[in-house]
Write a protein that binds this DNA or RNA. Structure first.
Length: 586
RNA sequence: GCACCUGUAGCUCAACUGGAUAGAGCGCCAGACUACGAAUCUGGAGGUUAGGGGUUCGACUCCCUUCAGGUGCACCA
């Protein structure tokens, strides 16, 4: 009996065949709509009968009965099939089918191989993090980095070639003021100690020294013009700003497990903008309005009057220009099948206008159009519901936030596991602290605001990183105590049929991983995966409390160890997909 | 003014994009370690899904409308 990774897909195909076999009228139009079910009803349910029967004035229960009769014998061998309510088809996997699946999908590699069909052969560019150079990363940069990385990993797991592109804000008017300030007030010692801190200091001085309509502002503008015209000194300064910024960013990224393939910031597109203006003019999508080159979308309720500005009246580019060039570069150079941009919801209008423009432009020029996704997320707020700030109202730097996470986790580890060595406790605190920050963000639907709470993210109960990491550590502990390697083939081969309610409940949850991965990757919403892992850890804890693993009967013990091993690999795989690092003890 | 997002238990969040009796954690109440990690588990109480209308076999989910909060809207990104 061959075992498919995604059992729901199998059932969907089997039901379509059954519709034909049963001779349903218009059988080709029947869509089974298979989905995971509430465990009380079964493992999977098919809801397609209701709509199908309704549209054709048939009795849905009679149609459901026909389908059940037409199902291939293998389906009945694997599942209990029942008709319920007005015409739901319920499928409950039999213990042997559960065990068969668990035997095949036993490692991260095998799970990956199973999941890889979804995006096989596709290239996806993910644009996330994207801070401005010469500035520190702050709490506002957290969500894009964390959510973006999780999305990258999920896409890669489902078979895509993923290109991580950090679209840095490394060009623009602020560099005139920065160079102006730098040339006057930069302190070499401070610069060596903490370059970004110093750049921020001299930028503030430069900004304060160049008020509107002042001769100083004209000097700052002149610095910018020199930079744009390729002046060697200013260009070297700008390059230095970028280099030290990237080095500082990487310190943060290392802590979050992020490594970009490219850092193609706005400056990269400077020499690619003329083509944009030319093509959009040529196909008559862009027009001049008040001196600026803009795009209107007459079919849109708002963008018919709200312009998408792609070149300013003074001839300078803006982020409309560079984002258009970016889309083209990703389509042409990377041959992207999909582009994902991860920014906060306030840029919704911009990307809606951008994507509308790209679709028309690519169609007119016959450029191949990738799928375009703007992945948005809400704000990070304090527990008062307002933007998260330091006590004195300042911006919270990302470095300080991660430091505090580790410190708070360290205090908890000291309390819970004083017997471990300090270096071990430090390492655990790093994994738990950073993981808590990442997971707090990923565990909830990204479209709403997220209330930042140390106590909640570091809690040991509930849908938190510590709870999940604890489940992982506890399973490792079982194998350590028994001196067995998780997933050991000789142990697995002894396993007898699953029997107890807790064993079956855990196994039924384990085989749902494919459905969860599909859902999370398709919707680009990592919280579906987080929720699944939390529920899985809960099922495991219930199983662990109900059924002793290290019993004398070798067959019972082997099957429970198999369940432990699969839970472990599923939790670890899932947490790694979210960007967390897991522990063997904590 | 136009548009987008959000509104679910006291609090923080889910609900598989239209499916069956809306679920968790915290907090509250009552229980479980001379068994493998109690950083855990088992039970209980707690709901007019902001209000109102509509669509249909079925609505937290889609449409209309009102209310509340947030955000964006001509040359910052």
């Amino acid at each position: 009996m061959s075992v498919s990774f995604n059992l729901a897909t199998d059932l969907d195909a089997a039901l379509k065949s059954a519709a034909l076999a049963a001779g349903l009228t218009d059988a080709a139009a029947f869509t089974p709509e298979v989905r995971t079910a509430d465990p009380r009803n079964g493992d999977y349910q098919s809801n397609g009968v209701l709509g199908y029967a309704k549209a054709r004035k048939l009795n849905p229960r009679a149609v459901a009965d026909q389908l059940v009769a037409g199902l291939a014998p293998e389906v009945h061998e694997r599942c209990e099939v029942t008709v319920a309510g007005p015409g739901f088809l319920n499928f409950t996997l039999k213990p042997a089918a559960l065990l068969a699946w668990l035997r095949v999908f036993d490692t991260e590699e095998h799970l990956r191989a199973g999941a890889a069909a979804a995006h096989a052969g596709q290239t996806w560019v993910v644009d996330y993090s994207s801070p401005n150079t010469a500035k520190q990363m702050h709490v506002g940069h957290l969500r894009s980095a964390v959510i973006g990385e999780a999305i990258c990993r999920m896409l890669a797991f489902t078979g895509a070639r993923v290109i991580r592109d950090n679209h840095l804000g490394d060009w623009g008017t602020q560099f005139g003021k920065l160079i102006y300030g730098y040339k006057r007030w930069a302190d070499p010692t401070a610069l060596a100690a903490d370059p970004i801190e110093e750049l921020e200091r001299v930028y503030k001085l430069g900004h304060a020294a160049t008020p509107d309509d002042s001769p100083e502002l004209n000097e700052a503008r002149a610095e910018l013009v020199k930079l744009q015209n390729g002046d060697l000194e200013n260009f070297a300064l700008w390059k230095k700003f970028s280099d030290v910024s990237l080095a500082a960013f990487q310190q943060i990224y290392d802590r979050l497990g992020i490594r970009f393939d490219h850092n193609l910031g706005e400056s990269f597109y400077n020499d690619k903008l003329e083509r944009i203006y030319a093509e959009l003019g040529e196909v008559k999508i862009a027009e001049v309005s008040d001196g600026a080159l803009v795009v209107f979308h007459p079919e849109h309720p708002r963008f018919k009057t709200q312009p998408f500005i792609i070149r300013k009246a003074d001839g300078a580019s803006n982020y409309g220009s560079t984002d258009l060039a970016t889309a083209l570069y990703r389509a042409e150079h990377f041959k992207a099948d999909g582009i994902v941009v991860v920014t906060d919801f306030r840029q919704g209008d911009h990307f809606e206008q951008l994507f509308l423009t790209v679709k028309k432009w690519f169609a007119a020029k016959n450029h191949r159009l990738p799928e375009l996704h703007h992945v948005t997320f809400g704000a990070v707020t304090g527990e008062d519901g307002k933007a998260l700030k330091t006590r004195d109202g300042g911006v919270i730097k990302l470095k300080a936030l991660l430091d505090e996470a580790e410190e708070r986790a360290f205090a908890i580890v000291n309390e819970k596991s004083p017997e471990l060595s300090e270096s071990e406790r430090r390492e655990i605190a790093r994994f738990v602290g950073i993981g808590a920050v990442q997971y707090a963000d990923l565990s909830q639907n990204r479209s709403s605001n997220y209330v930042f709470s140390w106590d909640k993210m570091l809690a040991l109960d509930g849908n938190t990183a510590p709870y999940l990491l604890y489940a992982v550590a506890r399973i490792h502990s079982i194998f350590r105590k028994l001196a067995i390697v998780p997933g050991d083939a000789s142990t697995d081969s002894l396993a007898s049929a699953l029997e107890t309610p807790a064993e079956l409940a855990l196994a039924r949850k384990l085989v749902k991983l494919p459905d969860t991965i599909r859902l999370a990757a398709e919707t680009l919403r990592p919280h579906f995966l987080g929720l699944y892992l939390y529920e899985l850890a809960g099922e495991f804890s219930a199983f662990y409390a109900a059924d002793k693993v290290a019993v004398d009967d070798p067959a019972v013990r082997a099957r429970r160890l198999l369940l432990c091993a699969r839970t472990l690999v599923t939790l670890e795989t899932g947490l790694h997909l979210l960007g967390l690092r897991t522990l063997t003890r904590m």
